[in-house]
Simulated scan of single mutants.
Amino acid sequence: MLTTERKALIQQVLRRDGRLIAKSFAHELGVSEDTIRRDLRELATEGLLQRVHGGALPASGATADFPSRQTTASSAKNALGLAAARMIQPGQIAFLDGGTTNVQLARQLPPGLKATIITHSPSIAVELAQHPLVDVELIGGRIFKHSIVTMGSISAEAISRIRADLFFMGVTGLHPETGATTGDGEEAAIKRLIACQSAETVVLATREKLGAASPYRIVPLAEITTLVVETGDYADAKQMFQHETISVVNA
């Protein structure tokens, strides 16, 4: 089998099964495990999969920068944002992570809602500036331009002093094996810290994030309380995470 044929088959298996074990796949094709590992390295370099110990997982397609993501899956993000906005109760403190889906959440908070929103996203703070009853607390720090959120020691120190009822966490991948992942190590650490400071963690996931993985782990699935997905993805998400304690909500 030619290299291009093996690589095409690898991607086919990942789409079908959601994972690939290098040793078993090499045995199935009658080639060495080193050959398959080389194929996986090359495909990972091209951003076509995410290598993990012993094999590979599908790579997340949600890794573009903030301006690019603003124009994708707008109807899906609108539905997810609306469903999530209903979760915030009067008097609660909610932390909104950065991301285009959470921007939709901010836009759809009911005008009569009196609550406190904490965020390290200037974009979300601007969206909420005109809300009549929501108090907005903006975490300072160094701007991470890819996601347009603040990070660094100043951000971490401020976050460590808060206690939130809900954390709406942005991810680029959500997989049963790797949990919630993202593309930057420092951003993953900040998200993990916010989750630790929050009573519940909610993830709003568009289709390309489900069953996919990015390089840096944020938290395992056991630390996510609720997953909000589109109507068309509800059955697949329930099946994918059936052995987890996470609650799946249909948007």
Rank of each mutant, 00 (worst) to 15 (best):
I118A: 10
T101R: 02
V103K: 02
D165G: 11
I154N: 07
I194Y: 03
R107Q: 15
T206M: 05
V203T: 12
T181P: 00
A106K: 05
M151Q: 06
I117S: 01
A205I: 03
T178P: 01
A205G: 03
S155T: 15
L133I: 06
A199T: 11
F168C: 10
I154K: 08
A212F: 01
A189R: 11
Q104P: 04
V126R: 12
A199V: 07
L128E: 04
T119F: 06
T150G: 02
I117F: 08
G185F: 03
K145R: 14
T201Q: 07
R207A: 15
I93Q: 01
Q130T: 09
V126T: 12
T101F: 03
P122S: 10
V134Q: 04
T201R: 04
V171D: 00
V203I: 15
R142L: 15
G112D: 15
C196E: 11
L138S: 10
F168A: 09
G91Y: 11
T150M: 04
H131E: 09
K191C: 07
G99C: 13
S147H: 07
S121N: 06
G179F: 01
T178V: 02
S123L: 13
I162H: 08
A156G: 03
Q92K: 13
F95T: 01
T100M: 08
R192A: 15
S153P: 09
F144E: 15
H146Q: 11
R161G: 14
T182M: 08
I154G: 05
V126G: 05
V134C: 10
R142K: 14
A158M: 14
